[in-house]
Design a protein around this nucleic acid. Structure first.
Lengths: 226, 226
DNA sequence: TGTACATCAGTGAACGCGCGTTCACTGATGTAC
DNA sequence: TGTACATCAGTGAACGCGCGTTCACTGATGTAC
């Protein structure tokens, strides 16, 4: 029997596979919605997800062997989301100056627009199931490497060996993900706080890029200047 | 009736308050043990904790109103652990050179020695309960500020305004916590991997400190060097 | 084209289980006299 | 010092509940002829 919560007629979805795809997406969306309500993915039950999607609990098994498998598909969605972010970031016109600040703005908008996905990343990246953690880390590493390649393509930091450039991008990505939590936690009614946060974010990245620009393969081993 | 799993006689614990303190610690330790088995704190049940501590479930309530309250005490323990870390780090002799690398080694040893606490921090810092998240973040900020003060006391980065120095320490702490996960996830039988990780960690911090050393309050707004 | 059968997404009922929480209790420790 | 009573950490049994998973099913969609 079709799911009454989703008007399949109206969607012109008649074939079995189309209906199944709709339900499949409904389950993924239901899980993200619950994450958006402040729950950590790992603590959400199969029954809750099915309920949120307007299905009977056991119907879940027609789509996923377990909630963890659903989580792995969410990680895939995250991978796509990060890839789209890079594509958007490449649109930032480098000739207009202040690239960094404008890139940060693009990122902030992007995080807000993909709130649920970034909430999912933040909470499952270190907490929760080992399998998910590993999958997320793999995708984040991918993202880091692509960013490094973009730097190369733009002719930035030509003097850095690849391993060092990847390390720099690793720091940048780490900073970005930390900032994502701040962006998502911001109370909506405090523009001043948001501006402060943005400035801090920009300065953190400036400092990293400054360090990268100064980097020599064997820097003086004194490490800490006086 | 005394808990048979803990030999109170042998511990010379006879007074009611002493016995209670022992049980209290047993519950905290039980929770950390379960975290050490790969579980995320938020997903551990009251009954599991009591069972691990060798108690009947409802005895839990004699010590904590809820598992979340137990978690808050673990956060306090974490705060103490971080403070001890700073104290140990101050022992690193600055006259002997290569301070950074030696500090990193101190940190690695410390993370390994306090494995469970760092596992707890890592998994609950962004996942799980909002209350715990906020408490952990507050303590981490505290730690960051103390580190900034230590830099001041050592006369390092005199030219940096306080807000900038705190930002630098924020980056350092972020990098440290990210490294903690890597340290804890390391397979014990791969010294090469460990060495690689250490080197990467050292280089990340070198880059941050290099950037901090170069920092001028209004750096050129071009941001990205060509 | 129509008919007969196969497929399979979703249903509804049921199961056993671990959960958080309650209750009245026990018996060792603590206290007042 | 001994005695009588209070305190309270931990017990044991019980509760109602939501959980994951199973089963036989339904009825619309798909397919073969």
């Amino acid at each position: 029997m079709p799911n009454p919560d989703i008007d399949l007629q109206r969607l012109d979805v008649h074939s079995r596979s189309e209906r199944k795809a709709v339900s499949h997406r409904a389950l993924l969306h239901a899980a993200l919605t619950l994450v958006g309500e402040g729950r950590s993915f790992t603590s959400i039950s199969l029954r809750e997800i099915a309920r949120q999607a307007g299905m009977v609990p056991n119907a879940f098994y027609r789509h996923f062997a377990s909630p963890e498998n659903l989580g792995l598909e969410l990680v895939e969605e995250m991978g796509i989301t990060l890839r789209r972010l890079l594509r958007e970031a490449r649109q930032v016109d480098p000739s207009k100056g202040d690239i960094l600040r404008r890139s940060v703005q693009v990122y902030q908008q992007y995080v807000k627009a993909n709130r649920l996905v970034f909430l999912f990343i933040s909470s499952e990246r270190s907490g929760g199931s080992r399998v998910l953690r590993v999958a997320i880390r793999r995708d984040v590493t991918h993202f880091t490497n692509e960013m490094a390649q973009d730097f190369r393509d733009l002719g930035l930091y030509k003097e850095l060996p690849t391993a060092r450039l990847q390390m720099v991008c690793g720091l940048i990505v780490m900073t970005m993900l930390a900032a994502a939590i701040d962006i998502l936690d911001l109370p909506a009614d405090q523009p001043l706080l948001e501006h402060e946060m943005t400035e801090n974010f920009v300065r953190q990245l400036q400092l990293i890029l400054l360090g990268a620009g100064q980097w020599r393969e064997k820097p003086s081993r004194g490490d800490l200047p006086a």
